[in-house]
C-alpha cells in the first residue's frame, strides 16, 4: 500500500513536467502579447518593449522556460503580470470560493444522485426508472450557464429568495455563505447528478443479478438492507471512478459557474488571467489543477480498498 502511494506520488513529477512544457508552449504560441495588454491602448512601441524587457519576455523561449522552472523549483510561482501580486498570494486569495463550490457541488451531487440511481435500478423498467433516466438525459444536455441563468431568474429575481450574485466568506457570515452557495452548487451539480445517477443505476443493476444478492434475499433480509448493504457497496467502485472523473470536469464547470454567479474564485481568476495574457498566473493555476487531479485520483484509488477488500495494492 505504502509502496503504491509512493509510486503514485512519484508519478506526479512526469505528469507535471509534461503539463508544464505544454502550458508554457501553448501560451507562447497563441497570439496576444501580455506587454501590449499591460501597456494599454495608447502605449508606444518603446514602452511595450520596455515592459517586455522587464518581464523577461524578450529572452529566447528556452531561457524563459528555464527561468520559470528554476523559480518553481525554489517554490517561487512568480509575479502576476497583470495583478502586480505574487501568484501564490493571488491563488491563496481566490481558492476559498472555488473549494467551497466544488465541495458543495460534490456533496449535493452524491447525496441526490446515488439514491436516485439505486431507486432507478431497483425499480428497473418502471415509470420511476424512466423518469430518473429522462431527467438524467436532460441534465446532460442543458449547459451549466443556461441552468444558472434560469435558476437566477426564478429564485433570485422572480421569487427573491436568494442573492443573484456575489460571495460571502465562510468565516465572515456562515448564513450568507450558504445563501450565496446554493444556486451555484445546484447549477453545477445538475450534470454530475445526471452522470452519477446513471452510473449508479447501471452498476447497481449489474450487481443485483449477482448470486450473493439472491443469498441475501434468501436470508430474509428486507429490500432496503439488500440494496443498501449488499448491492450498493459492491457497486461502489465504478461510482467512485466516475466521481473522480467528475472532480476533474468540475474545474471546467467552475470557470463558467463562477462567471455566471460572480464568485471571486480560481475559475474567474483563470478567465481574467487568460484575457490579460497573464502567463505566470495561468501556468501556476493549471499546474495546480493537475496536481489536484492526480491527488484526487490517488485518493479514489485508495478509497476503492475501503469498499472492496479484494483490492490490494
Amino acid at each position: 500500500m505504502i509502496d503504491f502511494i509512493a509510486r503514485r506520488l512519484v508519478s506526479i513529477v512526469p505528469v507535471l513536467a509534461v503539463v508544464a512544457i505544454f502550458v508554457f508552449l501553448m501560451l507562447r504560441l497563441t497570439p496576444g502579447d501580455p506587454a501590449a495588454v499591460i501597456a494599454g491602448d495608447n502605449a508606444t512601441s518603446d514602452q511595450i518593449a520596455d515592459i517586455r524587457a522587464k518581464l523577461g519576455l524578450d529572452l529566447p523561449i528556452w531561457q524563459q522556460f528555464a527561468i520559470w522552472i528554476g523559480d518553481m523549483l525554489h517554490g517561487n510561482f512568480g509575479e502576476s503580470f497583470f495583478f502586480k501580486k505574487t501568484v501564490a498570494s493571488l491563488i491563496a486569495q481566490r481558492i476559498e470560493p472555488t473549494l467551497a463550490l466544488a465541495i458543495c457541488t460534490l456533496i449535493l451531487a452524491v447525496v441526490i444522485a446515488v439514491p436516485l440511481g439505486v431507486i432507478a435500478a431497483y425499480r428497473h423498467g418502471t415509470a420511476v426508472d424512466r423518469i430518473v433516466m429522462g431527467f438524467s438525459v436532460l441534465g446532460f444536455s442543458v449547459p451549466v450557464f443556461v441552468i444558472g441563468y434560469c435558476l437566477i431568474y426564478v429564485f433570485a429575481i422572480y421569487l427573491g429568495w436568494l442573492p443573484v450574485q456575489g460571495y460571502t466568506r465562510i468565516g465572515v457570515d456562515f448564513g450568507g455563505f450558504l445563501e450565496h452557495m446554493i444556486l451555484p452548487s445546484v447549477s453545477l451539480a445538475v450534470i454530475y447528478i445526471a452522470l452519477i445517477a446513471r452510473i449508479t443505476r447501471a452498476s447497481v443493476l449489474e450487481v443485483l443479478n449477482e448470486d450473493y444478492i439472491r443469498t441475501a434475499r434468501a436470508k430474509g433480509l428486507s429490500n432496503r438492507v439488500v440494496l443498501m448493504r449488499h448491492a450498493l457497496r459492491n457497486a461502489a467502485v465504478p461510482i467512485l471512478t466516475v466521481i473522480g472523473i467528475g472532480v476533474a470536469l468540475l474545474i471546467g464547470g467552475a470557470v463558467v459557474t463562477e462567471s455566471v454567479y460572480g464568485l471571486p474564485g480560481l475559475g474567474r481568476l483563470t478567465v481574467e488571467a487568460v484575457l490579460s495574457r497573464d502567463f505566470p498566473t495561468i501556468q501556476a493555476v493549471i499546474l495546480m489543477f493537475s496536481v489536484v487531479y492526480v491527488l484526487i485520483n490517488l485518493l479514489i484509488d485508495i478509497a476503492y480498498t475501503l469498499f472492496d477488500p479484494r483490492i490490494r495494492y
Binding site: 448470486d211 443469498t215 457497496r233 459492491n234 472492496d308 477488500p309
Partner: peptide, 14 residues
C-alpha cells in the same frame, strides 16, 4: 437455501 456457486454466493465485501 444453499446454492451451487459458493464462489459467488457470498458477498465479497463483507
Amino acid at each position: 437455501m444453499i446454492f451451487q456457486e459458493p464462489m459467488t454466493a457470498l458477498n465479497p465485501v463483507m
